[in-house]
Write a protein that binds this DNA or RNA. Structure first.
Lengths: 216, 216, 216, 216
DNA sequence: GGATAATCGAGACGGTACGTCTTGTCTTCGC
DNA sequence: GCGAAGACAAGACGTACCGTCTCGATTATCC
């Protein structure tokens, strides 16, 4: 449905310096990047409603058809925009201590969702997923699954270390850790400070009979 | 901004029989209801994108201007649609036992969000709130605040009864109870069964040193 | 069809100081005048398209219904506007000399059509008559016939005096005198000076074997 | 302002067979013709008020935007409609005799203005010119000037032949010939028969001392 | 003097058309 | 064959007026 992978680069070029304007040998990397950047800029500048295929094409200096050739809807473009930028580091820490790992991770996740530019794109995509079942599915497999895997990582490592029981209901525990966070971001709009995320971690520890280590 | 209250009924009529087609002394109740119903129907039948001012007007047998006279956007209409219907019973049970109350409430909330028609409107409104800061504010004060008050009610009653400590961080606890639920509905899209909501209640009880009563 | 005569004034008041807001026995003269004046002003300020029932009502401080009670269309209002103002003196001179009479009359007619405010209304009404056969009929009987009678007057007087033959084709002669004038005003838009109107008179005189008297 | 010339045809095709649906290298001739025809039909069927951009688009099977891309107003469309059809033959006869030429020409002009379909469009355009100064200017340069040149032609030829003096005031004479005709059509609405147009010619001849030849 | 009846201002109503905007498809041409 | 350019059909947007209606207040006249 959506364009998942970019066209294969001409073999041997190493994907490096070649600048082609689109010809029989594949799509124009130049155009692709210009489109993603234009979409991103428009979202930041004018909000979701300000992102239109027409506007993106104009700002990217690209024909509309070039967008439609590779994406179906503006949300598909935004999703690629997100994937392009989402190197935004959310890889969980691995300190050897669940408490520390979780505190660190949740803080960064809160910051990502609530304040960063990619976070804004992310929220826009979640919003779109409410309106469009088909998009929701693609979005989940392309963006959310990776995210959920990251969310689970600290817990999995703790299980491996023996800090947590092996029969832990991983899905439910993860939902309880990150769910309240998304809830605040998406629903109530309340700001999220460390005291909130730390509170979530403490509750988690208490539930599992772990003592709360001193806060940094 | 949005039309908050319907026009005052002529005193003493009990809101019953008066039929006026709109004049200086008030708007047409007939038109108002037709519009809300049309919007609701369209959302259910054709999804959010299928709700257009033009379509609502046509189906309601109403002039577009009549909609614009009282609402600014289609989401404002949907919000009133929601408020009209949201008698959908979510008033928490008061059995005298926090555990029972919470289990009952979360199950019904899950059902409301995930399966009911008003729940679909609710999700659409939350989605719109991601895109429009102004709408978000109105939506929160007109819809969410009441909801949050309901969410908190079981806990407040338990505090009153002495089942829970008086210094409970009400906001944080509520977020931990309902947050994962919203997260599943809005983000992951996973279905929510009683085992999930009951698990949330159990975790809550365990956190606060309460024993888990037998499940019904 | 159109409102031809104003409502009879209450007898004895002499149309002077009475201020009534309209009751069962007569309409409000105040409102009638405000409407006519508003329509006139709007035509001058914003052109024909700027004259709307809504706009007239607003500027006159009058309810739309009050206009519709007495007139059918905005052109009906404009016609009454015209009749109200058209005291603009076009009564032909009677000097005893056809040549002098005609010269004077055509000059003033040209000025009326081309430059005066009532002339602008007149042109607007003629324009509307092209689009609406029904209006054309009313317009002719209410405005044009009187005008045509005035046009003919100098010739009729000359016939009475014996200056012109009794079997003169009055209609055709009048058309040849004023026709070119209307043509310039309505069609070509060329400015009309005395040399043009005087030329028309000279041609007329020559056609009928009359000598051209010295120009003033 | 208004669309003056149609898009250049690809050279050498003779305007014949090429069918393009509109692209960067020119507009769709198909759409252009459909629009003009639809406008014409609507004017004839429902009168000037029945010609709406919406209606023209619908009947032509064309998007409104396609009309707005090439014309500003419905009267601009009607003007092109007129120019398209105005091959309606009004080219003056050249018999070698002014009297015959003029009689023939005025009769045909009367018929054109009073009875033909293009004549109806012409009157509608003149009406619009009363309301809109800008349109008046365009209309005159695009339609009227050509017409005036035709009007003058019989006289010019007579001057060339020596039948009329070389110092004839061409403009004034033309106005006196056709002015009464337009006056009847536009203002009084009286029907125009040959006796009227022939009378105009006779008057012209008499003014210039020419004998009236026998009528055909 | 109280009832009646028409006018008045106000403005909501169902509509139609406006002119603009965006979508997604298409055709043509240059590279 | 890709990409730029841009015309096209479709249709929603929000606005402006249309002509009708209902309301409550305001009078003159009549009983």
């Amino acid at each position: 449905m959506a364009s998942v992978t970019r066209a294969a680069e001409p073999s041997g070029t190493g994907g490096s310096g070649r600048r082609h304007h689109g010809n029989r040998h594949g799509r124009s990397e130049e155009a692709r990047l210009a489109i993603l950047e234009a979409a991103d800029d428009l979202l930041v500048e004018k909000g979701f409603a300000g992102v239109t295929m027409e506007g993106v094409a104009a700002r990217a200096g690209v024909a509309k058809q070039t967008i439609y050739r590779w994406w179906n809807t503006k949300t598909d473009v935004l999703m690629d925009t997100f994937l392009q930028d989402a190197t935004e580091d959310l890889t969980p820490l691995d300190s050897g201590d669940v408490a520390l790992d979780l505190r660190d991770y949740l803080r960064r996740l809160a910051c990502f969702l609530g304040e960063s530019a990619p976070g804004a794109v992310f929220k826009a995509l979640i919003a779109q997923a409410q309106h469009d079942q088909g998009f929701a599915q693609v979005f989940r497999s392309r963006c959310l699954d990776a995210q959920r895997r990251r969310d689970r990582l600290p817990l999995e490592r703790a299980v491996d270390r023996g800090q947590l029981p092996a029969d832990l209901d991983m899905a439910a525990e993860t939902d309880q850790l990150v769910g309240p966070l998304y809830y605040r971001v998406l629903v109530t709009g309340e700001p999220i400070g460390p005291e909130f995320t730390d509170g979530l971690v403490d509750a988690f520890l208490r539930r599992h009979g772990l003592t709360t280590p001193p806060r940094p």
